[in-house]
Design a protein around this nucleic acid. Structure first.
Lengths: 347, 347
DNA sequence: TTTGACATGAGGTACGTACCTCATTACGAT
DNA sequence: ATCGTAATGAGGTACGTACCTCATGTCAAA
């Protein structure tokens, strides 16, 4: 049997009430007694029965997910996954609130976070690009004792408590190796596409990608990033222009998750067998592009795992428990048509 | 607030005691009352507070992991992971016993399982090759109401309750695509190695591999599988023989997890840049082979996830709860030197 | 010596569920 | 009318922890 409070009391020669006071850090216990009780607890390897404690406390873990509201399929999938986890989490005393925020407006984001700091949440998971405004808001939250984890998009660990997501430099490197090996030995060019290079993530991926391409595949020249800004016309024009300018494009690398326009352009105007296409995030669209062969590989991260991991981490932070690094590490997944079946749907 | 037993009682117009009888399937309640109570419970969307129930019942989940005792690094990593999970699981009313069994002796396996069926465990996770003896033993366990999940090595779902592991045909296909695309366009041969083709897993991987190679890369001829049976000399001789016989070997595919001998042979006798090497399972050995460049890709599955998933599934089965398919699906992971850093260590 | 502050003990109630005993009711069979 | 039985209610204790009140103890300053 695991030791309980009465066992510590007996061991330390005090009453259960005193043990309770010590364990819960309440005042009115002399230093000597505190250390005797602590020693007894350590000696017996006491661990509080969390579920009994939570039952007694009527504890509820209240957490909020703050994510961009008008994103593409990735953000949508993320929201779905949060809602799904929310319904399951209810059985584990965890209430999850989904807070979509206008992504382009740092002030709206800060307002939302400020409101949260008033509303007695136990933890916040946030996906947002780093800005000075955000940094300050997060710092404030931490000062009020609310744990904050960043998901998908990195925030410096000095600011938030934890980051749940992949290493984007390594992801870019991975894309690079696949690109280099899939594209063959003939010299040629690689076209790189991104929604916007304002995003940290895109910059990191590009840098990892370039690193590998330069070192391992110098016969492939990586062209400057074309920024799409979700403008279909602009993207189409830019791609077509580049393809006309260079007749030796062997591959296309799409850094960010919005690829609808890319796929459309490709399937309309060109023979997709001519070059290797690698993209990020296994959205429904990218999934079908893999199936049809328009895309050759997708580098992705498991959204369900990210959400569950964020919840576990926030719960652990809230209980001041250690987190299980192995379980919380998000892996860079490589998806080809062939292992697609075995990968979770985003639905 | 979530509804509790008194709420159901009020709703159904009966006493809490009767609700208790109904919810726990005890006798002495008329059919009409049973259905009225059930209806009330459904109407209020009642879900039993598992932790309070477990507290009241002093419940312990007792589970056993039955795994091969003298395996290579993979089995060792599995054992480590089980022990690690065991220590954490204690805080969640879960006791995990690790039972290593002589892999080559089906009778020993059956004896162990039989002993388990006497010893009041709540669930069993087992990694073992399918044999008629095992099938019968597992069927018996299921008849005594003990949930059994197969891990890593498939057992038919008609026999056990669940399988935690990857689809080996898809894994073989994945290896095939990587091999085909990495090896280039020149015609040549692919050498295939396995510990033993007695193993279901190896056969499935090979069949997936062949499927892709035939359809997508017909210029590459896949040679018959060389079976190593963990005999270093034999493996070295076979590899050297084959390499001498065919001067156009472009790739080596190692189906099973024991690759020490393969790596040794390669690093001793040949220029490893000449061919692509793809292996399974990210064991410490394979990890270092990736780092040095001896191996080009490793197809793997996350052992920690497998163990945790098996525990969750067994707990769910034991409580007759639904399992969360998305969370329990094990993904086929592709590991290259570049995304190695981001993948869990096996230690 | 009194006072007061502080340390500790004793004992209770609560959380939501399980499970037990005993009492009561209803109803059909005798 | 009486009895037996099945159905139900009433009320308790327990699980391990939290948190509350009140009583009692100790010791030092006034």
């Amino acid at each position: 049997m695991r030791p309980k409070i009465v066992d510590i009391a007996r061991e330390a020669g005090v009453s259960p009430a005193t043990v309770d006071r010590v364990l819960n850090g309440r005042a009115g216990v002399s230093d000597g007694t505190v250390s005797r009780v602590s020693a007894a607890a350590k000696k017996l390897a006491y661990v509080r029965d969390l579920s009994a404690a939570n039952l007694a406390k009527k504890r509820m873990y209240r957490m909020a997910f703050v994510i961009p509201e008008h994103g593409g399929q990735f953000q949508q999938a993320l929201a779905t996954e949060v809602l799904d986890s929310a319904s399951r989490a209810l059985n584990e005393r965890t209430e999850i609130e989904l807070l979509p925020v206008a992504a382009e407006d740092p002030h709206a984001l800060v307002r939302t976070l400020h409101a949260l700091s008033e509303s007695a949440v136990d933890g916040i998971a946030i996906m947002a690009p780093e800005t000075p405004l955000l940094r300050d808001a997060v710092r404030q939250l931490k000062e009020s004792g609310i744990p904050v984890v960043a998901i998908v998009s990195t925030l410096p660990n000095t600011i938030c408590d934890h980051f749940v997501g992949i290493d984007n430099i390594a992801a870019g490197k991975t894309a690079g190796v696949l690109m280099g090996r899939f594209a063959g030995r003939a010299p040629g060019k690689i076209l790189v596409l991104s929604r916007s290079m304002q995003s940290h993530d895109s910059v990191e991926r590009r840098s990892g990608f370039d690193d590998v391409m330069q070192k391992q595949f110098p016969h492939l020249e990586v062209l400057p990033t074309i920024e799409g800004h979700d403008d279909a016309q602009r993207i189409r024009r830019a791609i077509n222009q580049t393809l006309q300018l260079h007749n030796d494009v062997h591959g296309i690398y799409s850094l960010s998750s919005g690829n609808q326009q890319l796929g459309d352009t490709l399937s309309q105007c060109h023979n997709t067998d001519d070059f290797v296409v690698i993209a990020h995030e296994l959205t429904p669209y990218n999934r079908s592009a893999l199936e049809t062969g328009t895309f050759d590989a997708v580098i992705t991260q498991n959204i369900g795992h990210i959400v569950r991991s964020a919840i576990r981490v926030l719960r652990a932070k809230s209980d001041r428990l250690e987190i299980h690094r192995g379980q919380e590490k998000v892996r860079i997944e490589i998806v080809l048509k062939e292992n697609l079946v075995a990968v979770n749907h985003v639905d």
